[in-house]
Computed example of a mutant assay.
Amino acid sequence: MDKYAKIKKIGEGSFGKAVLVRNRTDSKQYVIKEINISKMQKKERDEARKEVEVLSQLKHPNIVTYRESFEERGNLYIVMDYCDGGDLYQKINQRRGVLFPEDQILDWFVQICLAMKHVHDRKILHRDIKSQNIFLTKGGIIKLGDFGIAKVLNSTVELARTCIGTPYYLSPEICENRPYNNKSDIWSLGCVLYEITTLKHAFEAGNMKNLVLKIIRGSYPPIPSQYSSELRQLISSLFKRSYRERPSINSVLKKSIIRNRIDKFLSKTVR
């Protein structure tokens, strides 16, 4: 850690914390995720290291860039680029109820989808898609970050861990204690799209039991009428209760409302 100077803590999850740092050599700011692996079983430690290896291979304009990782004093440190434009959750809260234009929503959504395609094409699951894990640069480019490191060994642990964090993005299959799959990521993607569109969570309740019931029913308040029927249909397709009926990320990118925007963000190097 000697080459980094701590600036401030910017987040804390169920398995570690995120700290904003400055590199003493080039003065650039980075985010370091600190994960305590000293209390983990050997199998879990190996799992965490393997996931860092996977992270290091993800190179895409819409994914937060991995820089390096190292271990010191029982902690695993992962150094990532710092996104200076905050996250989508903050952007949504700053609106104070004033809805985003559809163009803005779709521009962001396309970039999230391109990042997810890069991940799913490599048979990797994100496992923790939510508005707090979708970052922005000052230039307005979306960066998907915070992959579910410390991969959960089964869906019960997943559920327990998520209850500590943000249960709003849970899919019906996880609520029913069935395994996580790539379509569970798609459900969470629907939750994010709904949230950017309405500035609210699709599924909200005063307690976990009622929240789980709402999610399993798949009932959510309607989308404001100012938005196109294509956007409404897209959200409804991501919220199919049976994961088999939800589209894959490649199918989402083929929908005309999305396909027409892809070239705007797809540089020649990303195809």
Rank of each mutant, 00 (worst) to 15 (best):
T156I: 10
L114E: 09
I186R: 04
I164P: 04
L170P: 00
I134Y: 08
A115N: 03
W187Y: 01
D128N: 11
F147L: 13
R178G: 13
N182I: 10
D146K: 06
P172Y: 02
D185S: 09
Y194T: 00
D121Y: 00
E173G: 07
L136D: 06
I124F: 12
C191Q: 01
I164Y: 12
W187Q: 03
G139P: 07
S171P: 04
I142M: 08
I142L: 13
E176V: 02
K200W: 04
L189R: 02
V110E: 08
K117F: 09
A150D: 02
S184R: 08
D185F: 01
I112D: 07
K130C: 01
K130H: 10
I186D: 03
H201D: 05
F147G: 00
E173D: 11
G145F: 03
L199M: 09
S131M: 09
I186F: 04
I164L: 15
C163I: 14
S131Y: 06
E158W: 10
R127D: 03
F147M: 13
N133R: 09
W187M: 01
H120W: 09
H126C: 08
C191H: 02
L136P: 00
A115E: 08
N181T: 14
G139C: 10
L159C: 01
E173M: 00
E173W: 05
L114C: 00
I141A: 12
E173P: 05
V192S: 04
A160E: 14
N182R: 13
R127T: 06
A202C: 03
G190L: 03
L159R: 02
G165S: 15
Q111L: 09
H201C: 01
K117W: 07
A115P: 00
A115G: 12
K130N: 07
T166H: 04
L170V: 00
L136I: 05
F135E: 00
R178I: 10
V119S: 10
D128Y: 02
A160S: 15
I141V: 14
Y168A: 01
G139N: 14
R122E: 12
E204W: 03
I141W: 09
L153C: 14
N177R: 15
V157L: 14
C163S: 14
I164N: 12
A202Q: 02
I196C: 11
